[in-house]
């Protein structure tokens, strides 16, 4: 299996009036060809910043990449100039976003937008690019693409707009697709269609996918490998089945326990006590300590960050005596 993207020890921070916010603090992960790697976490855990920083989409300043590397083929994405990144963005690495209502330009016909990557990266003529765009729309299951291509985004439903985004992202046949909460804004039935579509196209084209979400249920459906992020760091990383069968870190377990589908009716829903920590003011040692039960809190590391250890083959978790649950 070949590795498409290899991120090592990525550190991104934001320099704000309230101090330095360490949004991503030493994150490492790999993405394999034809596989889907999930990044799960709550708002503010750093999952989106991780991916945005790879494509140079973090505004600098206030953002700053403090260290690390991101090997994509034989280049390090973090070392590229804006110009070199422009050649990769939208051609070899594509991205789809949460809200298809705001990420399409309401003033431009759908065809113009879907064909744009071809015009920019492959220098095709308008008529040729539009011909390919019709094919791309057909490929993502938009009925009557010859007619629809001339319409504007407001003439499409939410699910259809997300299909347009996917067509646009895949029209250049990228090696890597980054999907940032692509189904969060959609209804369940549409969500399923879009997830199935991404999976189908991935199989057919053999692309690698990074899937960012806060929804563990979606993760269980689409991902092969899962990275769980908390307070800018990975707390657990594992193949998906292993993670759901044997979550080892207290935070992952707490997240799973708070899914309403898994709770008996009538009992109060489990909630994780406290709030996610302030990233400008992280506690030293284990970041999850303030939200642990008192008896476990006493065991948590306070003097240093818990390192990731391999608890079973391929399954990594932060080695904090209070948070890591061993057999």
């Amino acid at each position: 299996m070949s590795t498409v993207l290899d991120v090592q020890d990525l550190k991104v921070s934001f320099h704000t009036r309230n101090g330095v916010v360490r949004a991503v603090d030493g994150v490492s992960f790999k993405v394999e060809k034809g596989k889907t790697t999930g990044i799960v976490g709550e708002s503010g855990s750093g999952k989106s910043v991780t991916c945005y920083s790879l494509l140079g989409l973090v505004p600098m300043p206030p953002g700053r990449i403090e260290g690390g590397s991101a090997k994509f083929g034989d280049v390090d994405l973090l070392k590229l100039s804006e110009k070199e990144l422009q050649r990769i963005r939208g051609s070899r690495i594509s991205m789809i976003f949460q809200d298809p209502m705001t990420s399409l330009n309401p003033w431009l016909r759908v065809g113009t937008q879907v064909a744009e990557p071809l015009r920019l990266h492959e220098g095709l003529s308008k008529s040729e690019a539009w011909k390919r765009a019709v094919e791309a729309l057909r490929e993502v299951g938009i009925p009557d693409p010859e007619k629809r291509i001339h319409q504007y985004p407001h003439e499409f439903s939410g699910g259809m707009r997300q299909r347009v985004m996917i067509a646009m992202a895949l029209i250049t046949r990228p090696e890597l697709l980054i999907a940032d909460e692509p189904t969060t804004a959609l209804d369940v039935t549409i969500q399923k269609q879009v997830l199935d579509l991404i999976r189908d196209l991935q199989k057919r084209l053999g692309i690698a996918v990074v899937f960012i979400t806060h929804d563990l249920a979606v993760v269980s459906e689409v991902c092969d490998y899962v990275n769980v992020m908390y307070a800018g760091r990975l707390v657990e990383a594992s193949p998906v089945q292993e993670l759901f069968a044997r979550p080892r870190h207290a935070y992952t377990q707490a997240l799973m326990r708070s899914i309403p589908a898994l709770q008996r009716k009538g009992e109060p829903l489990y909630t994780i006590p406290g709030l996610p920590p302030d990233l400008a003011n992280l506690p030293s040692g284990c970041a999850f300590r303030p939200r642990q039960t008192p008896e476990r809190q006493a065991l948590c590391l306070t003097d240093r960050q818990p390192p990731l250890v391999e608890v079973s083959p391929g399954h990594w978790a932060q080695d904090c005596p209070g948070c890591l649950i061993r057999d």
């Binding site: 369940v188 039935t189 969500q191 399923k192 997830l195 929804d215 563990l216 249920a217 979606v218 269980s220 459906e221 759901f244 069968a245 899914i259 309403p260 589908a261 898994l262």
Partner: peptide, 15 residues
């Protein structure tokens, strides 16, 4: 039935 089938969380409950 179609709605239930599309809901990922419910299948998770069976894992």
């Amino acid at each position: 039935q179609k709605l239930l089938e599309a809901a990922p969380a419910l299948r998770l409950a069976e894992v």
